[in-house]
Simulated assay, not measured.
Amino acid sequence: MGVGGSFDVLSGCTKRAPYFWVKFNLEWLYRVLSQPSRWKRALAIPRFMLAMKKQRRQG
């Protein structure tokens, strides 16, 4: 379960993304843009989604 970012926000280590980003479900993109070191981990998300779609079609 990916809750690492939630712990950072709740503990006060990181601020929450501005309302615009949250409203359009782009909080993850805001994180990647504001913390470029996360881009490699962020690329894993679309790869995972594509693998799940592919697996679902086969099964």
Results as ranks from 00 to 15, higher is better:
R16V: 14
L33D: 01
S6R: 08
V9A: 12
R57K: 12
R56Y: 09
L33C: 13
S37E: 06
Y19M: 13
K40H: 06
A42L: 00
L43R: 06
R38S: 02
R56K: 11
V32A: 12
I45D: 06
D8N: 11
K40N: 01
G12I: 14
G59H: 14
L33N: 01
K15W: 04
I45C: 03
S11R: 11
L10C: 15
M52E: 02
A51Y: 03
I45T: 11
E27P: 01
R41A: 06
R41F: 04
L50G: 02
R41N: 06
W28C: 06
P36N: 08
M52H: 01
F24D: 01
L33K: 08
M49Y: 07
Y19I: 12
R56V: 10
G5L: 09
L50Q: 01
A17C: 14
P46H: 13
Q58R: 15
F48A: 05
L10E: 14
Q55E: 11
F48Q: 02
Y19K: 14
R16S: 12
G59K: 15
V32M: 13
F20Y: 13
V9T: 08
G2N: 13
V9W: 03
R31Y: 09
Q35D: 08
S11W: 07
Q58I: 06
A42N: 02
F24P: 00
V9I: 15
C13R: 14
K23Y: 05
Y19W: 15
R38G: 00
P18K: 01
G59S: 15
G59M: 05
